[in-house]
Design a binder for these strands. Sequence first.
RNA 1: GGUCUUAUCGUCUAAUGGUUAGGACAUCACCCUCUCACGGUGGAAAUCGGGGUUCGAAUCCCCGUAGGAUCACCA
Length: 550
Amino acid sequence: MKDYKLIAEKLFPKCKLTIEELEDKYPARNLPQGAKVTRVAPSPTGYMHIGHLLVALVDRRLAKQTAGTFYLRIEDTDKNREVEGAIKVVIDSLNYFGLTPDEGEAEHGKETGVYGPYKQSDRLSYYEAAAKYLVENNLAYPCFASTEELEKMTTEQEAQKIRPGYRGKWAIWRDKNDEEILAALNEGKQFVIRLRSNGDFENKIKINDVVRGEREMSENDLDLVLLKSDSYPTYHFAHVVDDHLMKTTDVVRGDEWLPSLPIHLQLWQAFGWSPTKYCHLSPIQKIDNGNRRKLSKRKDPEANVQYFNDAGYPAQALIEYLLNLLNSNFEDWRKANPATPNTEFKLDVTKFPVSGALFDQNKLDDISKNIISGFTAEQVYDFSLEWLNKFDAEFAKTFSANPEYTKAILSIERGTPNGRKDIAKWSDVKMEFSYFFEPFTPNIDEVKSLLVGIDWNNIVTACAKMSEQYDINDDKDTWFGKVKNIATELGYSTNGKEYKADPTKFKGQVGDIAKGLRVFITGRTISPDLHQIMKVLGKEKVVTRLNAFK
RNA sequence: GGUCUUAUCGUCUAAUGGUUAGGACAUCACCCUCUCACGGUGGAAAUCGGGGUUCGAAUCCCCGUAGGAUCACCA
């Protein structure tokens, strides 16, 4: 006769907490009907993966859309992988992207909310109580198998070409009697707690995922480890215990978890608890050697959300990119509601894609350009400076030496219906506006190479003439009238169509002259509205630059 | 290898048995224009292959093929 109570007591002599007492610590949440309780539960590896950000985004939206709660739990059950300061990285990232949790783990080891502790390493006694309950009810048992024994098992199974795993007759400790167990315990052997699986691989069960709908999968027949020999729980065990106690309603996670869903369902059943809903997200991928693969922490810098931060993408841009990935109708909504905060967009779980999407930098840039073009000069100034201070201290000094001047630069063609969309990220700002700042010393050969095909002497003359006539108070038409006059004096057509009709009658057209002015003033052939640029630069700089190659 | 899963323009996707297979990004051309950009107009560009079911298939079924996920005391 087996005495499960006795075994449980011997296994966990220090555990006095019963499962009932444990459950009593977690009262029902006082939330409206239909409110969702979601969580993001990263491991503290010192790294925020873009996939985790995606999960957090979905979690937070689902909670907000239903007046529910979104919390942060730290899954630090693998001591080998833990990194110092990792929790701060997670919290900072969530805050940066506007996905601050309502409760859970917070900075400096503090936490908010009454459903904690929110760090799994602080919950070990709870997992013990739960494991003890399972042992008492013959739903779990101790296993003293050594690593060598397990390796041998796997080798034999491979040799026999059968599905590997600790189960059935291979589960050598599954049916040991009390004496053998107690003897092993007395010897001080290390043990793990395993689930006593009642599943049959030949049996199919119906599983339900909110994205994919109803599916069939084989029952789990593996006697999986629930508590490791260091008495930390495995993911499977901690997930079910925590999400039950913390009253999670919807588990959102990567679809790499889909195959272990039968395990989790089996665990819910073992405890007699009703399972959460499950929402499995497909991964963000990239092409590698012609094949797709998940964005990898080791190989792909863009797998780390810090990458977008460092490149200077506004947080909103990455969020809207992800929203678009989740619900492809987001971009239609955005077009119809250009000024509405994206938090107003209602995420539809049933429209989530079921296969992984390739990360698309072009699309992100486009979204980001649109967002930044809607910012005020003030906002662009603040964000740019914040980024520059962090990554380009030298240019930051130049940039912020005269804030009014810099803001005037950033105001050019901003906020107009034809607003420019040339900044995708704050790291573009330096390239885009450097010619407004001194030193401005373009090399004559480079300048000439930009003006190939236009008579150099004519350009120099035109620039000199403009420098004499330039009046900073001229409006655009007056200013351009002067450009046309100079063009005419030098034998250039003032009308492009006229010139095209008979090029032999002219040395060129007014565009050539304007191009010359532009290159002398900005050192490039591409720039925003030249009239406004000259106004912002001021007469002194304009005159100097126009006469630089006289 | 077992199990699960996916397959529409280069990319993200729409079209839940009847559409000239739609949109967005990227790309190309033209227009606008002092340049670029913005904007506008237009172009090129897709239903993995083979069988069925049906009056009719991107859509349903079967078989292939290709990709992805998973098979730990990691999550």
